[in-house]
Amino acid sequence: MTLRTDTPKMLDTPPIPVQAKLAAAWTSFMFLYIYVDYYHLYKPGTIDDILVGVVFEFDVSPALMTAFLALIAIPALMVVLSTALPARVNRAANLVVASLYVPVTVFNAVGESWDWASFYALSIGVELLLLAFILRSAWTWPRTSAVPADPAAIDRRQDLRREVPVQDPTE
């Protein structure tokens, strides 16, 4: 009789850089943001309002369209900035922008009827969860210690310092 002693191998979960997590979260936020606006067009009366030049109780104007473009361009830029900026600036930018988008996201439900509560609760809820993930990821950004935790590394560094000859600047 043969006993099977092989155990299934565990899946490896390699660490994902914070920058990649942030870029992925901003990408998800963008997709949701765009699709919520797109699906809003199916709401009865929305297209009729647009055709007469009204969006969300505002008259359609170049200033309104510029504001809408800015609202969508900022998270779009955060996708690339999350991968390109240095850590300290990246962290600050993500904390500031995500914090500013929390009230912007909640504002999308202002003035809507209770008939559409499930649509807005789900869409705004998921957007807020993504923003919370961004805020948490940026807030808990890992830090490197100034001194290595490995005592052997400290000893090696001290040995290297002793080996480097120091020249007298007056010579």
Rank of each mutant, 00 (worst) to 15 (best):
L95S: 03
P151S: 11
A152L: 06
A152F: 09
L130R: 08
A153D: 09
P142I: 05
A149N: 11
L128E: 00
L71M: 10
F119S: 08
W114I: 01
G125W: 01
V106S: 02
L131M: 09
A87C: 02
A84T: 13
T83H: 11
A152Y: 10
V126E: 10
V110G: 00
D115C: 00
P103G: 08
V97S: 11
A92Y: 07
F119G: 04
L81N: 12
V79L: 04
R143S: 12
P148T: 11
W114E: 11
Y120W: 06
V106P: 08
D150G: 04
T144E: 15
A98S: 15
L100A: 14
I124K: 03
L122C: 07
V104D: 06
M78N: 02
G111K: 02
R88E: 14
F119Y: 09
A76D: 10
V89N: 01
N90Q: 14
I72Y: 08
V126C: 06
P151Y: 10
I72W: 04
E127L: 15
L131T: 10
G111R: 03
V110W: 04
L122E: 07
E127A: 15
M78G: 01
A152G: 02
G125C: 04
V80M: 13
V79P: 04
R136Y: 13
A132D: 03
P148N: 06
G125A: 05
L69S: 13
S82M: 10
L130C: 09
I74S: 03
R143A: 14
P103T: 07
Y101S: 06
D155I: 02
F107Y: 14
W139T: 10
T105A: 09
S113C: 01
R91W: 07
L129I: 11
A132H: 04
A70W: 03
W116A: 08
L131I: 08
S99E: 06
L122P: 00
A93G: 13
P148D: 03
A98K: 12
R91Q: 15
S82E: 06
V89W: 06
A92E: 06
A149M: 12
L128T: 00
N90V: 01
V106W: 04
I154H: 01
T83L: 14
L85P: 11
F119R: 05
